[in-house]
Amino acid sequence: MTVVASPPRPAPSVRTTRHWRWTQPAIVLLVGAVVLLVVRPGPFDLRVLTLVAAYAIAAVGFNVLVGFAGVVSIGNSLFLAAGGYAWAILAVPRGPLVALLAGVVVAVVIAVLAGLALLRLRAYYFAVGTLALGALGTVVMRNWTSVTNGDAGITGAGYLKLFGLTGVSSIFAAAVLLLAVFLYLQEALRTSPLGLAMIVGRFDPPVADALGVNVSRTRVAAFVLSAVSAAVGGALVAQLAGGAFPDQFSTTAAISLLVIPIIGGRGWRWAPVVGAIVVIAAPEYLRFLDEYRLAVYGVLVTLVALFLPGGIHQLVRGLVARVGRRRHG
């Protein structure tokens, strides 16, 4: 019995969301296979697609941080660097698994310490705190020459060889696979108690507290998860460049990481992939604008931030609603 006489609404958009946990990774793997085996793009386009996949992986964690827990950080380039340098230093001597794990462990340790220290702060203060953290990271990368070889960076880092592929296609395959895994984890987290706790912590902290959620602990957890995915993303970026250099993990990289989920649509399961395509691939294909390339990109970011807070997800939802309405006539 419907308790309340409410006006006729379009058929309730009842979505069984449980299937997404498998379908999203499957779609990504399918697209990856098609690109690799059927489309076979040229070296430059494949390299750009791999970079998109690498940043999408890093952005999954960031989508959890900004989209679920509602925490803004402009210093995540630090975790990219942790993954990148760990790979550049350890991949050849110790093999890929140790390198990836080492990067993740270092990133997690930094994230836990920084999270506990900074997460009591409010929006701006935390954001600028992470900016300072990123700046400190750059100073360390440039000057701890014994480990990071300073500005000259570390070259000769190997790449993840999979299924007998060589060169960028192997990195692309690895990136697509890892992206599928992380998207599976993102959806699993979203429907788990921890994920719901993060989301309610973002929307309404007093209600979250009343429901028994330790809001600051969930924010630290989100910060650590964003560090894990950034470290893995960083390792892939290092493989692409054949080494780790301070200029790869600068503030501009941290800003790109922040912009990807915002343009994609915070919290949306496709935000990391869609956002990465816009933020990483678009500038590559705007090269014909030459000098004005970055100016156009800046204007795009500002307009999305001000007039389209829901990002591309907001457009998609509008489209789906319009199609939905048309079907219901």
Partner: peptide, 11 residues
């Protein structure tokens, strides 16, 4: 607030 931060970064 956090979306506006990115607005100024774009500017």
């Amino acid at each position: 607030v956090d979306v506006v931060i990115i607005g100024t970064l774009g500017v």
